[in-house]
Structure formats: C-alpha cells, structure tokens
Amino acid sequence: MQSLLWSPERVHKRMVLEMDSNIQLMLYLIPTLIGFFLVLPIGKILANPLSQRFPSIATERGRLFFGLILTGVAGFAVSIQTLWISSKVSEGGNFCASNTVFSCDDVIGNANYNVDPIFGLPWGGIGATAFCVFLYLAYSSSLEPNSEWVDNYLKLGTALTFGGFFVIALLISYELEMEKICQYCTTAHIANVAAFVGFYRLMKLNESGEWNQDS
C-alpha cells in the first residue's frame, strides 16, 4: 500500500534516473559544443544562416556573446548536475556507475577527490559558482557593450577562465589516478575552455576598434 503513495521526490527521481545518464549528458554537451563552435572564428558558418532569425548573432560581437552565454548556461547546468550526482551518491544511490573507464559515480562519489583540498567545498558547487560569475560578466557586458566597465569585465573573464585551466589540470590528474573519467566533469571542462576562448576573443575585438562594426 505504501508503494502507491505519491511523493514528488519519488516521481522526480524516477523521471531523472530512468533516462540514460549518457543521453542526459547530451542536454549539456550539445549546447556546450554549439557555444564553443560559435566563439571560434569558424562559428560564422553556423551563425550566418541563423542571423536572419536571430539578428543579434549577425555581428561578430553578437555571435561571441551568444556563444559565450550559451556555454555559460550549459556549464552552470552541468555543474549543478554534478553537485546533484555527488549528493545522490552520498545517499548510497547510483546515477552513472559503470565498469568501464567512463564512470562519473566513481569520480564524483570519491570522497578523497570530490571536494577542493583547501576549503572542502564540492567541485560541482565551485563549478556552478564560477560559471555564474562568467555568465554575469558576459551577460552584463552584452546588455551594455559600450559601457566603460566592459573592457575590465572582459579582461576579468579571460583571467578567471584561464585560471580554470589549473583546476581542470588538477581534476584530470585525479581522474588519471583513479583510472576513471567523469563525462559530466569533462563537459564542464570543455565549457570552461570555450568560455576562455569567448572572453579572449571578445577582449581582443574590444581592443581592435571593430567592436561596433555591423558585421
């Protein structure tokens, strides 16, 4: 009789867990890769046909901001998902455990490596906070691109995302030690690399004097 009782937690858990974890990963990986593609010089190939429908991406600046914000949102979402996975694993549940080298449960659930070595904060929480900061810098700059603080915001974004490379190197060293790869973490790492490229290219564009060009 008890099993017939409805609980929002049970329904949510079933909906999430019933979807294959690798298919769920695509919800984050695809926007990350699209965002990455848009911030690259070759992103024009994708942006040009879409510029009729989305005029904001018709310009180089608009395309870079769009790609950067898309990457930031996807990076934030996948970081929140890793935080969720670490909480679920701590409850004793499984989400993406596997006997293969791709087993995010083994990485995210490893109590020796799943928190930062200084403050003991979960990496997923650190990632979510970092991507929120990137998003804030990118989003506010995109809303008022000619404000005098935009230059500093873009430089700060470039520096912070560059700093993320050291964190990524540390986390990859953990994965090598565990001989396991966390595909969700890797997606967040790709998002950080894409965000660095986006901020760096926006910073250079801002310095070049072509910031307000129409195309």
């Binding site: 929002p8 937690e9 949510h12 858990k13 949102v73 934030f76 979402a77 929140i80 935080l83 969720w84 670490s86 909480s87 679920k88 701590s90 409850e91 004793g92 979510a128 906070t129 929120c132 998003l135």
Partner: peptide
C-alpha cells in the same frame, strides 16, 4: 539562476557526509 539550481538540489537530495 544560481539559487534555482541550489533549490532543485536541496529539494531532491538528502546528502550524507
């Protein structure tokens, strides 16, 4: 956005240290 993410985690998990 950040707090919505945290609320989702708080509402759907009961982490054990």
């Amino acid at each position: 956005l950040f707090f919505v993410g945290l609320i989702i985690i708080a509402a759907t998990t009961s982490p054990v240290a």
